[in-house]
């Protein structure tokens, strides 16, 4: 499908969250980062949302940052996403879709012209060195609403980090 894929450096970005704070991905080096691309209108994003919120709670106190990126929505849609479930994580806003499109593999879903839309309800796990270690594009027939595979990827990274320290 082309780049980026697991093993590649995660494209850097700086976006603003719901409280107006700027978040720059490269500032989070040293932490495991979960990155979820979401929209208010996608039923799969909606089903996943409470689990994304609980992911942050689950890893509280550990070296894990969970970020959601809302894709190209008007104020109304962005507000609807935030209102649906209390989100204890930064919900960043990519108004143009440029940041998200920088993550879209070139040959993924070639029929879809809006390249940012290809990644709606896609999840990544990025290691402490800023490399993509896990990347699932929306897979509706094998939908993992509970984020079981994301948690597994995070656990693997935390385990290998503690192993290398000890």
């Amino acid at each position: 499908m082309g780049s980026p894929h697991p093993g590649d450096a995660a494209p850097d970005f700086e976006l603003t969250d719901q409280r107006g704070a700027k978040v720059k991905l490269s500032d989070l080096r040293g932490s495991v980062v979960v990155l979820a691309f979401v929209t208010s209108w996608c039923p799969f994003s909606q089903a996943e949302q409470p689990h994304l919120a609980s992911l942050a709670d689950q890893y509280r106190g550990q070296n894990v940052k969970v970020l959601a990126v809302d894709i190209k929505e008007a104020d109304e849609g962005y507000a609807r996403y935030l209102a649906r479930v209390p989100m204890p994580i930064p919900v960043l806003r990519d108004r143009t879709g440029e940041v998200v499109a920088s993550y879209t593999p070139d040959r993924a879903q070639p029929a879809i012209k809006d390249r940012a839309a290809v990644l709606v309800t896609s999840n990544l796990v990025i290691d402490a060195g800023g490399r993509i270690r896990f990347f699932t594009m929306a897979d509706t027939a094998n939908f993992d609403a509970d984020l079981v595979f994301v948690r597994r990827a995070v656990d693997d990274l935390l385990r290998s980090a503690s192993g290398s320290r000890g």
Partner: peptide
């Protein structure tokens, strides 16, 4: 049902 991994537009 939709199967995005085998999308047949």
């Amino acid at each position: 049902l939709p199967d995005t991994a085998h999308f047949d537009p």
